[in-house]
Write a protein that binds this DNA or RNA. Structure first.
Length: 332
DNA sequence: GCGCATGATTACAC
DNA sequence: GTGTAATCATGCGC
């Protein structure tokens, strides 16, 4: 080490103090303790020097034969003191909130595979009032907005991940570079990477949180919309009333009958169930009020039955074409 | 704006 | 899960 030798042998103001064999030409560091002491002194004093001087000293220190041994000892000391304390403090408990957010985003179809068809809010849409077209409009609107949220979420997440990866690589390179001049063990680099990932996952959690909030707002708006009541069409009310009054002794349509009524009225099965629930209780509470209505539908049913009979007779007569109203009967 | 009608929701019982 | 009863919230005619 021709160039570096002078540095080792001539520390400021402490030139080979009482060190045998440390004179010019002698191999550096005959006594391990004194040699190490010298090196440490030089390291301590390096900040007092000018930049050029310090650079030269650093280079010399790097080339010292004791450097690898000293370096690993310093790494070990650092590991045992500072890092071990920090390590204990930074043991993260499993983050329940993050898990909750992840689960919610998954359930809402924001993260994970995109949900298609009848899932999630579509079931809610099926129970909303009004014509079926309105449901599909609300549904497609909801899905479009959810898809927008999903898109933003993934794009932001990707950005964060890319930034995290770039920053981690940068810091790792920096630490590797610095590990040539100060005690940075691979373990410490790894720990630093974990810290960076931790910081970025905090940012990601904020993103997840705001995404969840956006979904909740969208959902609440959508759920509010379902309460908007629209009266059934005349056709639907007619079909339901006909069934109700023709089954007055037992106004409990079977599942099949409900489906049939729903189809005829252009409403959902649950709307049929709601209607019958309301009708039964309201009829029972005020039979007098519904009497007129009951008479009208009873007469209507009778007319329908007569029409069907008449049509049957006409069909049997070869000379008469079918003429009456089309009207499938709702016979009980 | 008011009152009634009506579809939807909720709590409860079975 | 279904039905009942009460209630809410909106539509609609006046």
């Amino acid at each position: 080490w021709p160039g570096a030798d002078s540095h080792w042998r001539a520390p400021r103001g402490r030139k080979a103090a009482g060190r045998p064999g440390a004179g010019p030409g002698a191999p550096p560091g005959p006594g391990p303790h004194q040699d190490t002491g010298d090196i440490l002194q030089q390291i301590m004093a390096i900040t007092d020097q000018s930049l050029d001087e310090a650079q030269a000293r650093k280079h010399a220190l790097n080339c010292h034969r004791m450097k690898p041994a000293l370096f690993s000892v310093l790494c070990e000391i650092k590991e045992k003191t500072v890092l071990s304390i920090r390590g204990i403090q930074e043991e993260d408990p499993p983050d329940a909130q993050l898990m909750r957010l992840d689960n919610m985003l998954l359930a809402e179809g924001v993260s994970g595979p995109e949900k298609r068809g009848r899932g999630g809010p579509s079931a809610v849409a099926a129970t909303s009032g009004g014509c079926p077209n309105d449901n599909s409009i609300e549904h497609s609107d909801y899905r479009a907005k959810l898809s927008q949220i999903r898109q933003i979420y993934h794009s932001e997440l990707e950005k964060y991940e890319q930034a995290c990866s770039e920053f981690t690589t940068h810091v790792m390179n920096l630490l590797r570079e610095q590990s040539r001049t100060r005690p940075i063990s691979p373990k410490e680099i790894e720990r630093m990477v974990n810290i960076i990932h931790g910081k970025f996952s905090t940012i990601q959690m904020q993103l997840k949180q705001s995404t969840c909030e956006a979904v909740m707002i969208l959902r609440s708006r959508f759920l509010d919309a379902r309460r908007k009541r629209r009266n059934f069409s005349k056709q639907a009310t007619e079909v339901l009333n006909e069934y109700f009054y023709s089954h007055l002794s037992n106004p409990y349509p079977s599942e099949e009958a409900k489906e049939e009524l729903a189809k005829k009225g252009g409403i959902t099965v649950s709307q049929v169930s709601n209607w019958f629930g309301n009708k039964r209780i309201r009829y029972k509470k005020n039979m007098g009020k519904f009497q007129e209505e009951a008479n009208i539908y009873a007469a209507k049913t009778a007319v329908d039955a007569t029409t069907v009979v008449a049509q049957g007779n006409q069909a049997n007569s070869p000379s008469t074409p079918s003429s009456g109203k089309s009207g499938p009967s709702h016979q009980s």
